[in-house]
Each structure stands twice: as C-alpha cells, then as structure tokens.
Design a protein around this nucleic acid. Structure first.
Lengths: 187, 187
DNA sequence: GTCTATACACCGATAGAC
DNA sequence: GTCTATCGGTGTATAGAC
C-alpha cells in the first residue's frame, strides 16, 4: 500500500514504538498512532494493511538498525566490548518484552524474531571465533556457547536493571570485564 | 471480593493461564475467562475487582508454586541439577513473555515480579554457596554471579527452544553438565 | 453466589469524496 | 495522499433481580 520508507511511514513507526514503550501494546491502536503524529486514523490503513503488519514492519526496522550497529561494532578496534555495550544498552527491554509477547500470536513477527536472533548470533560467533583464534581460552565454552551466554546475560541484566533488581550483577560485570581484558587486551 | 482460594477462584485463574498461553493477553478478557469455565461474565467481577487484579493474582499463584518447587529442589540430593531442570522446563516461556509485557503497565504486577526474582535468586545463591563451600571452583564467578548466569541461560534457552532456534545450545548444555559434574558429583 | 441486562467507550477496517 | 463518516464487533464495569 503506502510507500515504505516515506516520511509518514517512518513517523507512524516512530509513534508506534513510543506507544509500545510507554503504554504497552494494549494501547497500540491505529487511532493512537494517528493522533500521536497528527494525522487521521484512516491514513494508518493507507500505509499498512493491518495493525499486525505495522507491528511487523516496526520490528523489522528495529532489527535492521540493530544488525547494522552490530556489524559496525564487529569492525571496530575492540569488537567484543563494542558488541557487549550494544547488547546491554541499545534496545529498551520494555520493547523487547512487548515484541516477545506479540510474537506469540503474530506469525510474521515470530519469523522476523527468529531471523534476527540467528543473524545476530552468527555475527557474534564470527567475532568470538576471531578473538579465540588469537587468544585461546582454557574455558569450557567455544565461540557458539560464549555467544549464547553473553547474549543471555545482556538480556537478563538489562531487564532486571530496569525492574530495579541488581543482585549478583556486579559480580557478573566484573567477570565479563576480566574476560574481555584477557581475550581482547586494551593495550 | 470473592473468596480467594475457592473453586471458582482457582478455575478462573486456570482459564486465564490457558488463554494467556494459547492466545496472548489481548485475548485475556473477562468474557473469555467466563466462557472457558462455563460461568457468566459478571461472575468474574465478583471474584476479582478488575482484570488487572486477576492478572496479578494469577502471577502470584504461579510464583508461589514455582518457589515451592524450587525450595523442594534445594533440599533434594542434587539441588543444583534439580533447580536447573525446574528453571529450564517448569514455566512456559510464552507465559513469561506475556507477564513481562504486562508488568510494564500494571504496577502491582511489577512489584510481584520483582519479589519473585529476588526470592528465587536468594534461594539459588544459598544452594550455590553450599556447593561452592564443598567444592571450591577456580572460576571467576561466585555464587551470586553463577546464580545470575544460570538463570539467564535457562530463560534464553527455553525461549529460543520454543522459537526453534538452537545455535550454540548444545555447547552451553555440555558445559553446564560438566560444571554440575564437578561441583555436584553424581557418585 | 449467580444471573440478566445494559451503559459507555474503543477498536479494526472499509466506503467513498476530494 | 488525505480526509469524513460509519459499520459491526468487543471490551470493562456496574445496576439490580433472584
């Protein structure tokens, strides 16, 4: 329908993201999106066939941006630290929670989520492989296992951090800093 | 209002849990809950003041059951493995996703979630402390950090497993098995 | 405790004018 | 491309009878 990538298209996704973050997806309606960006409700259906489609488009746009950020981080001087920082800080964990819940019932979204996880994982494994080749570790985990572990820690730490829980966090952050110092020396 | 713990009260929470699991919280309405257990909509508001309150009650009941299971596991012959099994299998990750999203906008639920995380964490740290006292580890992490890491892995593995993603999972499971063998020998 | 009936608001989606 | 207007449906929550 409406031109993907146009100003209104982006504005609608921006509005939708803000609503999702601030009020949750029960409030993500065509009327609210329209009101938020100053157009009439009908126009939302000119740019998106259904509200589900809008949600999928929003996730896809976010995923593309996140993957671009990760790819850039992978080329930086200290890729592991850069990827860790992105994983820990870039995406609001409120939004992640909303998308995970929505993925349970929107098929197209579930496919996009799977795609994103796999692409991010592949990228992280590649970075870890290169790092391990330079500085072999005595640990039990290889690149794939480390990628899973680091991702899972980033998700849990940011979610709990937002909730106000921090038991054990300092210890984990300390261990990760030590690990990064070993495998990716600053000097 | 209605008697907490009565048959209808439990039946309503059972129905709500099933709806949440199968269709997501957009479908969690008083009408559907009533229909599912064969009563009229009005009755739901006899047992719960609002739908938000029903959701909070549902989470609290689940959390209490889960904590009881964890406490029992902590007293078993191999508490670490028992807790790991529970963390990985007991709660449907669809439900977790729904509750996390709902916690973003229901204050009472957010408080219950925080309470649950802290209690579970405390219990796990106690178990890990005892295990580490018997079999000190050379690793970087103490009991608190290990509890965070193990919890985060259980959450991510079960969620991705449900999505159909398994990159790196086998490696993590292998490393955990080795860790359990060391710190909590079978023989 | 359980019901019928209902007030009132909001939703997704579409018809069709300009 | 953007609008007015509207249909049909569903939601929360309450009034009040039995």
């Amino acid at each position: 329908m409406g031109p993907e990538g146009s100003d209104n298209w982006h504005a609608m996704l921006d509005g939708a993201a803000a609503i999702l973050r601030e009020e949750g997806h029960a409030a993500l309606t065509s009327r609210r999106v329209a009101e938020r960006i100053g157009v009439k409700q009908r126009l939302v259906y000119y740019y998106f066939r259904t509200m589900d489609e809008l949600v999928v488009s929003l996730f896809r746009r976010m995923a593309e941006r996140e993957l671009a950020r990760l790819a850039e981080a992978a080329e930086s001087a200290r890729p592991l630290r850069a990827i860790w920082d992105i994983s820990l800080h870039s995406t609001d964990s409120r939004l992640i929670a909303e998308f995970m819940a929505l993925a349970n019932r929107i098929d197209g979204l579930q496919r996009e989520v799977i795609r994103f996880i796999e692409q991010a994982r592949t990228l992280e494994v590649a970075v870890l492989d290169r790092a391990l080749a330079r500085k072999p570790q005595a640990g039990r985990l290889g690149a794939a296992g480390l990628a899973v572990t680091i991702t899972s820690l980033a998700l849990l730490l940011s979610r709990e951090n937002q909730l106000g829980v921090d038991a054990g966090h300092a210890e984990v952050l300390g261990a990760l800093a030590a690990f990064f110092d070993e495998i990716e020396p600053v000097a």
